[in-house]
Amino acid sequence: MIRIFRGKSAAKPTSSEVLTSYLLQCKEPPWTSYFVKYSSVIDDQWGKSHFNWQVGASNYHILRTGCYPYMKYHCTKRPLDNLSFEDAFFRFIKVFNLGIPCLVYGIAATYLISHKEVVKTCKGDVNIYFLYKEDKGSLY
């Protein structure tokens, strides 16, 4: 049983691989905001709330939160910066609120999501979800 579980999880891409693949797939957009299901990826960015992410020639500030059954990513192309204070602050807020607002956001998202796209990774395709279809390359 454990062997089967490991085999299935090993076949999933990591959340960081989906993040990188999507940003490259969109040719490093100025910003994007999407949801990915926990069940579709291995969460290798657990505990990170606000951090830098290097993709190609760009650096992104990533705001990330768990909102079961999804993980929410908001990515903005920005210069490299020390985000450790903001990361700790957002993590504190989530813990202080017992994660209840995040759970409510995830439940609401299941009803509000109106667009889906496919991200190609080396471990297969992953669906990501949007509240509305984005205008790729738009500044806003």
Rank of each mutant, 00 (worst) to 15 (best):
I107E: 04
A109Y: 02
Y132W: 01
V104S: 05
T121A: 08
L131N: 09
K116V: 07
K133Q: 10
A109F: 05
I93F: 15
L98F: 14
I113F: 00
I100Q: 04
V104P: 02
V118H: 04
P101N: 11
V118N: 10
A109C: 03
I93N: 15
K116R: 12
V119M: 07
T121I: 03
K133Y: 06
E117A: 13
C102A: 15
V104E: 07
P101M: 13
N97V: 02
T121P: 06
E134S: 06
I100F: 07
Y111H: 09
Y129D: 12
S114Q: 14
Y132I: 05
L112F: 14
T121M: 11
N97G: 06
I107Q: 00
C102E: 15
K136I: 11
G99I: 04
K116P: 00
Y129H: 10
V95P: 09
F96P: 01
N127R: 05
F96N: 02
G99P: 03
V119N: 08
G99H: 02
Y132S: 04
E117M: 12
K116C: 10
Y111T: 12
Y111E: 08
K133A: 12
L98T: 05
Y105W: 04
D125W: 03
H115K: 07
P101C: 11
G137T: 03
C102Y: 13
V95Y: 14
V118W: 07
L131F: 10
I113W: 04
